[in-house]
């Protein structure tokens, strides 16, 4: 009951932030959008624009209207072209979701495999996770992305990163997000698994004659997975920025490029939708990580 209240409070705070943040930007959409459309922002033109966009109402009224429409699935219309925000979201969300959520899931899976292998004594896995961690720490994602385009798109010609179908376009960005999150997570998994391997139950498992790889998977694995789930909550915030960078680099028509344009044009409805979605993504990952922790860690079930 208390937890439900906390989540509800978070969502309310999120809608307020999504509504207020775009309006906190200096400059009014009337000026930027009319300028973009080549219209001289005379007082009449500005008045007509604000009236048409419903921006002449009081701020609380606008907020109430936005929430009421959201409740029935109407995300409002973009101030620039007048296209429905919902349609734009539907076009762009899948791409961002594959790159961000797919990349994070892949990275977490890779981290679990690499980390446990490293804990079980594999030199290759230890060196690989170390190199991935160093890559994420020292090489900007856009430099690694350029190198990947050069290697896979130009030298080897395996994929066409800018043309081709959806799969070809998102393959490299998704792989980049996955590799960038995998390194540090894998080292965390290995560290936690090694801590478990020093405990008596692990020694017993080995003494029973369980092979190393199986003993690690069965008895140290859960410890690694718990640490991984806890770390996902922080990694989810990085993925938002990482996705924005690779989307721009690979010219993937996802949410981030849309948002970058929307900031410049002060396109409030689009920005509201974006901030709301990012907030929901963070809340969902948090909830997922908490659920996973509760499932994985019997000490938390009381």
């Amino acid at each position: 009951m208390r937890r439900a209240a906390v989540w509800a409070g978070l969502v309310v705070a999120l809608t307020l932030a999504a509504f207020a943040l775009p309006r906190a930007l200096p400059g009014h959409p009337a000026e930027t959008v009319l300028f973009r459309q080549g219209v001289v922002p005379t007082p009449e033109a500005v008045l007509a624009f604000t009236e048409q966009a419903g921006l002449n109402r009081s701020v609380p009224e606008q907020f109430a209207l936005w929430i009421r429409r959201l409740a029935v699935g109407d995300w409002g219309r973009s101030l620039r072209g007048g296209e429905p925000v919902a349609a734009g979201l539907l076009d762009r969300l899948p791409i961002s979701l594959i790159i961000g959520a797919g990349g994070l899931a892949l990275g977490a899976g890779l981290a679990l495999v690499l980390g446990l292998a490293a804990a079980a004594g594999s030199r290759t896995a230890a060196v690989l996770s170390r190199m991935l961690a160093l890559l994420a720490q020292a090489v900007p994602a856009f430099v690694a992305g350029l190198a990947a385009i050069l290697l896979f798109g130009v030298e080897l010609r395996w994929i066409r990163p800018f043309g081709g179908g959806l799969l070809e376009r998102v393959a490299l960005p998704t792989a980049l997000v996955a590799l960038y999150s995998a390194g540090a997570l894998a080292r965390l998994v290995a560290l936690e698994a090694r801590r478990a391997m020093a405990m008596p139950f692990f020694v017993v498992a080995r003494a029973k004659g369980l092979p190393m790889a199986m003993a690690v998977r069965r008895h140290a694995g859960p410890f690694g997975a718990i640490a991984l789930a806890a770390a996902l909550r922080v990694e989810a915030a990085w993925v938002v920025g990482g996705t924005a960078v690779v989307e721009v680099l690979f010219a993937a028509p996802g949410l981030s490029a849309w948002m970058v344009d929307a900031i410049g044009d002060r396109d409030w409805p689009v920005l509201q939708a974006y901030i709301l979605l990012i907030g929901l993504w963070l809340i969902l990952v948090q909830a997922f990580a908490n659920a996973a922790l509760a499932r994985l860690d019997p000490r938390r079930r009381r």
Binding site: L25, A236, A237, I263, Q286
Partner: peptide, 17 residues
């Protein structure tokens, strides 16, 4: 503060000022 996507906040601030 730790959980906020800092790059996104920085983008919005950069767009503003």
């Amino acid at each position: 503060a730790v959980g906020v996507p800092s790059l996104l906040v920085a983008l919005i601030v950069a767009g503003a000022v």
